[in-house]
Simulated assay, not measured.
Amino acid sequence: MPRRAPQLTIQEELMPALNPYLLFNGNAADAVGFYESVFGVEAIITRFSDMGGTPEDMPEEVRNRVANAQLPLSATNILMVSDTPPGNEIDNSKPGFTVQIEADSAEEAERLFTDLAKDGAVDMPFGKVEWAEAFGMLTDKFGTPWMVNYTGNAQG
């Protein structure tokens, strides 16, 4: 008779939130509409034009793309969706997703970013951004893309 793996207890207060972040090449709005209908939730959508610092010469079609959409699936799980910015389109050489971590502090976010980036590649340096006190993007040594985030009071 096969043995069962032991039941693990996760201490939620010690774990950062992990959320799937799906990436699209200009059709994220269609995907968001589909996922809203499937999961019966309403997404919170930010378009590139809603973000500060959007270049004036950005084409209108790109300005209207989804910069970030959040579909709350439960109190702790969020399906996140975005169109890729120009020049970062998804092809067969990179995955169409990333794993997003919401850390409990800027210090913890920086530690996670540094540890995950070891022997990997930094795609966006870690630092303060408009939507978060601390944020960075990287690809770990196994090819898995990550977004490490600490929102803090940036949206307060």
Rank of each mutant, 00 (worst) to 15 (best):
51 M>F: 01
53 G>V: 04
52 G>I: 09
22 L>P: 02
48 F>T: 00
52 G>S: 11
13 E>P: 01
56 E>C: 04
18 L>Y: 06
53 G>T: 03
40 G>N: 15
46 T>S: 14
58 M>R: 09
36 E>C: 11
87 G>A: 06
46 T>F: 12
68 N>S: 11
10 I>S: 07
28 A>M: 15
53 G>N: 01
33 G>H: 05
38 V>N: 06
75 A>E: 13
37 S>R: 08
25 N>P: 09
32 V>L: 01
83 D>E: 10
54 T>N: 00
31 A>I: 11
18 L>E: 02
18 L>P: 01
69 A>G: 07
56 E>T: 08
40 G>W: 04
34 F>R: 14
66 V>L: 03
75 A>H: 14
12 E>N: 11
74 S>R: 08
20 P>I: 00
43 A>K: 03
86 P>G: 05
23 L>N: 00
56 E>N: 14
83 D>C: 04
75 A>K: 13
51 M>P: 00
8 L>Q: 12
75 A>L: 11
11 Q>F: 04
14 L>N: 06
84 T>A: 14
88 N>Y: 13
43 A>L: 02
63 R>A: 11
34 F>A: 01
24 F>I: 11
89 E>P: 06
69 A>W: 07
15 M>C: 09
34 F>D: 04
77 N>I: 12
50 D>T: 09
80 M>E: 06
25 N>E: 05
46 T>D: 14
34 F>P: 06
60 E>Q: 12
79 L>S: 05
36 E>G: 07
70 Q>V: 02
36 E>L: 02
36 E>F: 03
16 P>T: 13
46 T>Q: 12
80 M>T: 00
68 N>I: 02
83 D>S: 02
27 N>Q: 12
24 F>A: 15
76 T>D: 07
74 S>L: 08
54 T>A: 01
9 T>L: 11
84 T>Q: 07
11 Q>E: 12
42 E>F: 12
42 E>G: 15
20 P>C: 05
69 A>C: 09
9 T>K: 13
56 E>K: 06
38 V>H: 01
80 M>R: 02
13 E>Y: 05
39 F>Y: 05
27 N>Y: 09
50 D>N: 08
76 T>P: 04
75 A>S: 07
39 F>I: 07
80 M>W: 01
73 L>H: 10
78 I>H: 04
87 G>E: 07
23 L>Y: 03
44 I>K: 07
65 R>T: 10
20 P>D: 09
22 L>D: 07
82 S>H: 06
75 A>Y: 04
9 T>G: 09
53 G>S: 09
64 N>W: 11
62 V>P: 03
34 F>K: 05
78 I>N: 02
49 S>P: 05
11 Q>C: 03
12 E>G: 12
61 E>Y: 15
72 P>R: 01
62 V>G: 11
63 R>M: 04
46 T>N: 14
35 Y>D: 00
30 D>F: 10
10 I>F: 14
10 I>L: 13
47 R>L: 15
20 P>T: 01
77 N>K: 14
65 R>Q: 10
30 D>Q: 11
43 A>W: 03
16 P>R: 07
78 I>T: 02
47 R>I: 14
54 T>Y: 03
56 E>D: 10
45 I>T: 15
42 E>K: 10
